[in-house]
Every structure is written in C-alpha cells, then in structure tokens.
Design a protein around this nucleic acid. Structure first.
Lengths: 184, 184, 184, 184
DNA sequence: GTGTAACCGAGACGGTACGTCAGGTCTTGCT
DNA sequence: AGCAAGACCTGACGTACCGTCTCGGTTACAC
C-alpha cells in the first residue's frame, strides 16, 4: 500500500537547479573545489534542500551523470566491419571530447568522485568502454564473453591512466592499445 | 659551484617524521581525511615546517612513495619463460597486497591524490605496470616497443578501474585480461 | 518600516556567553593575552559566530562595558554640599575598586583597548569622570560649563596616568589633585 | 675588578640599527603592528641579537625613547612671568606636534606600550608634564610641592585622554584646563 | 474552507581545517 | 663570543565549509 501524505511534493525545479549547478561548478573548478555551499548558492537553493535529498557530493554527481548533464555526448561506435579501425576511430573521438577546454578536468574530477563512490566508477566505465554492441563483436571475433568485459575495462582504464598522468595520448598510442587488445 | 649559506639546515628528522606520519594516516583514514594538521600533530612538527617544504598534500605523498614508505613491496615479475603465466601470477600477487586490510583504501587514496598531481599518477603506473624487464619480453614476444608501454598502462589502468568500481577481481578476470593483452 | 526576514535570529545566549567570557578572560589574563580563540573556547561558541557579529576584540569589550559586565559598580558621587570632600571621597572609593585583585589589570587592559578603539576611551572617561551631577555642581561653583568637562577629563586622565605608571595613589595625592582642580 | 672576556663586544651598530628601526616602524604602523621580526628585517639584524639584549618590545621602545629617537623635540616652557599664558602656549605647541601626520599614532602607541611597561608611562609623563622649571613656578604660585607633581600628571593625563578618545583639543579646551589647574 | 504537515529559501549555529604570521629558541658558519 | 641568517615548534589569526538547526512563507492533500 502506498503511503499517503499531506503537503507539497519534492520540487523538480530545485532538483534540476542543483544538478545543473553541480555539473557547471564541477567543470569550472574541479571536484576538490566543489562545495555544497557553492552548489546551493549557484542554484539559489537552501542547503537543507540538498541535504534532504542527497547523502553526499558524489551522489549528486552520480545523478547528474545519469541525467546526462555531464558527458552528454553519446559517442557510438560505428560498424564498418573492421573492429580495430572502428575502435581506434571511436577512441580518437572520445579523446577529442576530453581535450576540449574542460574535458580533462571533468574526467579527473569524476575519477576523484569515484574514489568515494563506486557507482560513479561504474558509470564512467560504461561511458568509456565503448559498450554499444562492441561486446558482441568482440565475442564474434573469437574472444570469450568474459574477455569482452575485461577488454572494455582495459580500454577505460587505459584512458583514465593517461588522464591521471596528464598525458596527451597520441594516435600511435591509441593504435597500439587497440592492436594489443583486439588482435586483427 | 655549490651555494654556501650559514644557519641551520633542513632537519632530516622532521622530514622523515612528516613522510611517515602521512603514510600512516593515509592508510588509516584515506586521502579525503588526510589533513595537514593531523600530519603535523602525528609527526610532532609545526604546520609551518610542512608548508615550508611541501606545496601540497599530494607532494608529500609523492615523496613518501618515492621513499618507499607506501607500497613498500618490490613485486618482481618472475621469468619462467611463459610470459602469460608470469604476468598472471604477478597480478595475483599484486591483488593480494591490495586486498590486505588497507590496500584498497591506499590505492583509492593514491588515485584521488593523482587527480591533483600527475606525478603521483606516473608513480602508480610504475608500481602497477610490471616494469621489471617485462617490456623487453613483450617486445621479444613480437609487439613493437610502443605497444609494450601501452600494455603496461592498460594493466595498471585495468587494476585501478577494478578498485574504483569496488570490484574484487577474480582469477578468471586476471587470466582474461592477460590473454587479451599478451597473445600466447 | 521594519525589515522582515525569515530564518534563524541572532542567538542572545551566544551573545551573552561571548561577552561574559571576554570580561572574565580580560580580568584574568589582561588585554594582550585576550584571544578570540580563547573567548570562543570559554564561551563554547564557534569562532565564526564572533567574527559574524563583532569586527574586533575591542568591539566586544565595548559591548561588554555597555552591558555592565566590566566595572559593574555604579559609583555615585555623594552630595554633602562640600564638593571637594565629595570628590575626594569618590576618588578614594574608585581607587579601592581599582586596587582589588584584578582592578589594575582591568584598567590597564581597557587603556590598551582604547588605543585601538576611541569608543572605549569615551566609555572609560564616563566611568572615571564622576559625571553624576558633578558637572552642574562644578558650574555652580563658579567654573564655566566648558571647564566642567575638562575637569572631568583631567580627573580620569590623572587616574589613568597613575595606573600606567604603576603608581599607588596616596590619600595626599588625591587630596592634592582635587584641591588643584576644584578651588574651595 | 673588571671581567675580562674573549670574543667581540656588543655591536653598537646593531644596537642603533634596532632602535632606529623600532622607532621608524612604530611611527609608521602603530604599536600593535610592531613585530620583532619586522624590526630585525628592517635593521638587517638577526632575531637572536634582539632577544639577547632586550627582554621585550617595550624595553626596546623605552631605550629608543631615552635615546631621543622618539619625541625628539625638547619643548621648553617659556617664562614670561604669566604662568597660565606660558602653559597654554606650551600645550598648544605640544598639540601641534601630536597633530603632525604620525604624532597621534605615536602617542597612542606609547600608551599601549605603557600598559605593558610602567617605565614607559613615566617617560611619557616626563615628556608631557611640562617639567622644565614649571614645578618651582607652580610652588612659587602658592601650591605646595605635592600639588605641583599632581598638576603635571593631570596635564599629561588630560592629553592622553584626548588622544585615546580621538578628540581634537580646541584652544578653548586647553585654556579651560590650564585655568582650572593654575588659578590666576 | 481550513488545518496541518512537509516543502522551500535563507542563514545562524558549534565545529574542523585551512594557509599565514609572529613568537621565542636553537643551530650553523662567519668574523 | 657576537653576529646574520633562518629552521624549528607553538599558537593565534581570519576565512571557508561542514552538517544541523531554526525561522517565516508556501503548497496541497485530508477533513
């Protein structure tokens, strides 16, 4: 049975204002400088409204990620039949996004958030492991299902590693990792 | 020519006390709760002594890593002739270290620190990419030099990814990623 | 029209706790050793609560003075008809207060505070210049109104001077200054 | 018998540099902002040299006062035969000195220093109580010796009071206090 | 309609940590 | 042994946020 209750329901407007503000501030200042007070200020929302609905900074970001307010792009992997070429091309596109003014900061921030909240790690993996039908193609390629998952993680992990080291991945690097992971 | 100056020199005792305290507190409380004040307290050192010599929390950790106060283990990759088996065995050993009471927390903390300080990312890569002569063996295996580097990063990145997602890597997972990266 | 605002009001309890703590610590340790942190600690109040409402140490003392938490005594000048005798007697009483265990320290502290905050100087003048109807009597005595003010300041200034020099005023000294200022 | 000792004697150059620096900084920044470190820096002197020879900030100022580095002016009271006129004229001159750019700050600073060190109070009294032969003239005027001292203190105290209250003394005020203290 | 209970914005509260400044002591190499 | 330089530990500074709380105002269902 549903619980019936008087009074107003949760304000969708406030919820969206918070998520938007959080996403904006994250891109501008990085995770370390993302404070609840700043989010409340930017969103013109009382602090209590935030504490009422979200248990942590990371929870806000998780929701913002799920709402598509961060990493909005749905980068699909094309299918030309050549898996290596498709993956290489897809990774290049992902990198061009991350190299945009605040892309690096954003990814670094999300990694930081993930250290506090595994769910964010999973969301990042999903965004960075080229999941659009790739798995089936990897399996079709000859690798068993379990390897398909691991290969996705390796791709995502490799990209994270580059960002954490402040490295700018070269076309050669991308080609090499794809060749190593997906034998022609 | 050396610069000669009168007056007291930097206190090696204070330096080591700070690094030790930082390493201990990191393992106990995680990076988010690692404060300069706590380090100073634990090390019986004035805050100013820390601010005089280190520009940031992350810089302290970098130095502690380099001094071998964190991840002390020198996990060598054995050479039985079978690269896949050697790597698999090495990764399992690394994992058993990370699964020790504070291993996971430590790695997560270092990832968080790396988001603020790329040098820490590089140090982690070195510790996690099985660099002891592996590169030569990978090259001997048929992959070009560039791929050897990328494969190392992929291994390290994959492990970081598992930790961030809170996943406990299975023997199957390890075997799969090694198979994917190092064709028999 | 009054300004209406939602939200919590200023806590009177915190305000009084701060003023009381400040007065106590002043009497115990002197102005030089009166720190905001000690006041906050003693009053069980956050430092920010102090900084929110008072711009300086001296402002806290001013308010404490006005609230009668320092120099609580309302030392009235009696009127026996003999102005010289009344003033002499009043100054002796003031001195006995200042000679009490912490009286000297308190006055010295207030002088120190006054060097940073003229308003405290004015409050001290009021407390030390025997203003209760004296002015009218001085005027009635033959001195013009302006001189009445100056005579009050001279009395207060003389007492401050004695305290600053660490001197213990003698009955003779008091009698002499009263005679000099108020011709019989 | 004199104690013979090896090694260099106290450096007069360092001593004067410290006193000069202290006097300059006092006039510029006020007593509250006069720090040992700033004096050492300004005087190009090691902190230890200061701590070796002076027990406190106030002791430095006392010595600087005695050396005539502060309130250098020797304001003499003239003798035209009219004591009231002479005192009034002298006080006006003192005030014009105190009203010079840093005069007020200096006096306020000295008062603050006196709260920590009675000797400074006495030095100020000497400078501000018109001691040059005035005492004899006051006595000759008919007041007993003790009153002469008190009258001097009252003059000095009155001036301090004006400075502490941030008041600008008017010619009328000066005339009034002189008339009150020195009956024609 | 009218309670009434939960929502909302604002922001004060007791705290913790920040990064800086100065205090007073100690150490080093020079003169 | 005095000196300039400056590292050391200590502790206060004034600021930024934390997470909790208290206000007045505003819905929106339940009676």
């Amino acid at each position: 049975m549903e619980e019936h209750r008087a009074g107003p329901r949760r304000s969708e407007q406030a919820r969206l204002a918070v998520l938007t503000a959080a996403a904006d501030l994250l891109a501008q200042n990085g995770y370390e400088n993302l404070t609840i007070e700043a989010i409340a200020r930017q969103a013109s929302v009382g602090k209590q409204t935030i504490y009422r609905w979200w248990p942590s900074r990371a929870a806000i970001l998780t929701e913002a990620l799920l709402e598509g307010m961060i990493f909005r792009q749905q980068l699909a992997v094309r299918n030309t039949g050549d898996l290596r070429r498709d993956l290489t091309e897809w990774m290049s596109r992902v990198w061009s996004v991350l190299d945009a003014p605040q892309g690096r900061m954003l990814l670094r921030s999300l990694v930081a958030a993930a250290t506090e909240h595994p769910a964010i790690g999973e969301l990042m993996r999903d965004r960075l492991s080229a999941d659009g039908g790739i798995r089936a193609r990897v399996v079709a390629h000859g690798d068993p299902a379990v390897a398909a998952v691991e290969i996705g993680d390796a791709i995502a992990g490799w990209m994270m590693m580059q960002v954490l080291m402040g490295a700018a991945p070269t076309p050669d690097g991308i080609r090499a990792i794809v060749h190593a992971l997906v034998p022609g």
